[in-house]
Design a protein around this nucleic acid. Structure first.
Lengths: 199, 199
DNA sequence: AGTATATTGCACACAACTGTGCAAGTTACA
DNA sequence: TGTAACTTGCACAGTTGTGTGCAATATACT
């Protein structure tokens, strides 16, 4: 592959990231334009629109999963909070795109790349239940989905209502912990006693 | 208007309710077919697809708002829980459609009919904050949106993962209370000490 | 039974896309 | 500098929808 072709491929992915973050239904025309290319040449890099989207999602989801994989802490609740924190940082400037990937028509594909992350969440919750720090009134698998949903709600809220990044970051963690069963005070205490949750 | 025309209009709205609940992007063709009419005759009742959707949403949202308007209780938290409960009952069998109305492209229109309901939620939360029973770490307006989002998450969860209606009903209330800042135990206690939340 | 009212099928215009074929142009790079 | 690799514009086919005009038909209601 020629060097400019490589660069253009990158440019297309970057453009798609931006454009789909503005409007998940953005056309190839719009994406190509942002990349400084013609719609026609998109097909020189990706066979179909779908292929472009899948690649984009795979890259993003893998990156997120990889980042979250390095999280570690003995306390499952703190681990959960740390995961939420990492998630925020990884997704901060592609919030809409992230929500689209997880909730949109390609969610099945996203799920594959996100599987390890979700496994980690389920494990942490199960551990928390065993330790008595996470609610027992909702089955673990379901609670894991609801916790993820809470995080997405926070992302969406941060997208619509412009708020300072630090507030959004804290909000994601708070909602995750609240959904896990903590009271607002307990959640705040947990965050405040763990400075690594500020970064 | 002729009597059969009135009936067909109703049939179209009912069909749209069902069809859009299966797929929010359902075509007029599909809706008309379910109503036992031809696509062409839809235009005898509604000028555009948009008009049909708006009418549908107005009817539904108004009904929900009216039902919620009759909720009353001194304790703002219990009131919030009762609102969640009513919401569930009103929306139970059009969950997908409800989520579409609130999150989809017509959310602006939905907002009008839903305004009184949202006002009530904001008020209850504000009252709860004043009474010290609702979290103070998130601004009231934002918290109101997040509480609503939590309810929607519960609806979505109940839609995807088939669960008994009673469990879904309880889940909606639990998530609303958790988001409001209660611990899982506090939320459960509140529900269990208020039998009217079971109906 | 007669008439206003509804419904239907069909054709058509239109829009906004995706994806392809091909000839002509441009550019990396050996 | 030559050539393979890449990009472009344009035309075209195909898809899937919405919305309209119109003539033919069916139906409610008086």
């Amino acid at each position: 592959m020629r060097s400019d072709a490589v660069a253009n491929r990158e440019a297309l992915l970057a453009a798609a990231r931006v454009e789909l973050n503005l409007d998940p239904d953005a056309s190839l025309e719009a994406i190509a334009a942002r990349a400084g290319l013609s719609r026609r040449s998109v097909y020189g890099h990706f066979a179909t629109r779908d292929e472009l989207l899948r690649e984009l999602i795979t890259l993003g989801a893998t990156r997120v999963a990889a980042s979250v994989a390095t999280v570690d802490h003995d306390d499952p609740l703190v681990r959960l909070a740390l995961i939420a924190s990492r998630l925020w940082h990884e997704v901060e400037d592609i919030r809409v795109m992230a929500v689209f990937a997880v909730r949109g028509p390609l969610k099945g594909h996203t799920a594959e790349a996100l599987a390890p992350l979700r496994l980690r969440v389920v494990d942490s919750i199960a551990e928390g239940v065993a330790a008595g720090s996470v609610r027992r009134d909702i089955p673990v698998a379901r609670l894991a989905r609801l916790v993820e949903d809470a995080a997405l709600s926070a992302l969406a809220e941060a997208s619509s209502d412009a708020m300072p990044g630090s507030a959004a970051h804290r909000l994601v963690i708070l909602l995750v912990l609240s959904t896990a069963g903590l009271s607002a005070e307990q959640a705040a205490a947990l965050i405040d006693t763990h400075p690594e949750l500020d970064s």
